[in-house]
């Protein structure tokens, strides 16, 4: 299946205005982690918090809903959250841990759960793994380069970044800028070209804007736990949902992009194999 195994797919957004104001799209990650914290399903979460350099996130352990909300919004460069998981279950004393991860990180986390070398007593403590859709990710220097050099914007003025409609968007206080996504090609990290996972197929629940209208997100619940936590959150009114059949652009777009990533990168993998180059999995 091009979208991986799943229980249900819906379009959703957080009902909390405070979350809507700071979130990238539907505020699913922020809303769900904050809900899980409030309900004591988790005791803390590793999230991509603000770093010292502007737009360069640093993984942080959030132990309150406020800290989760402070970390809302997509950062288009890596936040090595996996690195922080062990610290969260050690010095922070968290025994029920949530986190947010892109597909490659999710694969890493699932692998540490299967083979816990160097991460003893971590596997059983990860209670909620929220995945986000990811086509590719940019090293921080790449991001800086195409924002300041290609778009001519001082990165410190950037208020929000986004990818959508085939373009990379940058919002400043007064203006909106964009460049076609193909302008960013070659700036992504190399590993992204051999990754076949667009919709975070190993997460408890995966989300992203693709398939839903502006301000909404498409949520794919994948595991029993992911599904039940999300359903509880919907029932308590944390999220409002719409049937995927009734929203535009709809599931077709998500399937199309997921298939595109698989097809394109499978070709890269085959080519690399042909050349005798290593493929990471």
């Amino acid at each position: 299946m091009v979208l991986g195994t799943y229980k249900e797919i819906v379009s959703a957004r957080a009902t909390d205005k405070e979350i809507q104001n700071v979130s990238q799209d539907g505020g699913i990650v922020t809303g769900l982690l904050a809900y899980a914290l409030d309900e004591k399903i988790i005791e803390g979460a590793v999230v991509a918090g603000p770093g010292e350099e502007f737009w360069k996130p640093e993984p942080m352990v959030a132990m309150t809903a406020d800290e989760i909300i402070a970390a809302a919004g997509t950062k288009y460069t890596f936040s090595p959250n996996v690195m922080m998981l062990k610290k969260a279950v050690r010095q922070y004393g968290i025994e029920k841990l949530g986190t947010v991860a892109i597909p490659c990180q999710t694969m890493g986390i699932r692998k540490t759960q299967s083979y816990p070398f160097g991460v003893r007593f971590l596997a059983d403590k990860i209670k909620l793994l929220v995945g986000i859709y990811c086509m590719e990710n940019f090293p921080f220097a790449s991001l800086q380069t195409f924002i300041s050099e290609k778009m001519g914007i001082d990165p410190t003025l950037v208020e929000k970044m986004d990818i959508g409609k085939g373009k990379f968007w940058v919002y400043t206080q007064d203006d909106v800028f964009n460049i076609p996504l193909k302008e960013t090609h070659g700036y992504e990290q190399d590993g992204c070209n051999v990754c076949l996972d667009y919709t975070c197929e190993l997460a408890d629940l995966a989300t992203g804007s693709v398939g839903s209208p502006d301000g909404w997100s498409t949520v794919i619940t994948r595991t029993e736990d992911g599904n039940s936590i999300f359903q509880q959150a919907v029932e308590t009114g944390v999220f409002e949902t719409k049937d995927m059949a009734n929203v535009k652009p709809g599931l077709d777009l998500l399937e199309k992009l997921a298939a595109q990533k698989k097809d394109k990168n499978q070709k890269t993998i085959d080519k690399r194999k042909e050349m005798g180059l290593p493929v990471p999995y």
């Binding site: 005791e43 803390g44 132990m63 062990k86 610290k87 050690r90 010095q91 922070y92 004393g93 003893r120």
Partner: peptide, 23 residues
């Protein structure tokens, strides 16, 4: 940080204090 070969014991003290929850 680790039960067998602790990573948090450092020259100058400890790498980090523990959280209030952990305490």
């Amino acid at each position: 940080g680790e039960g067998i070969h602790p990573s948090e014991i450092r020259i100058g003290g400890m790498a980090d204090n523990i959280s209030e929850l952990a305490r």
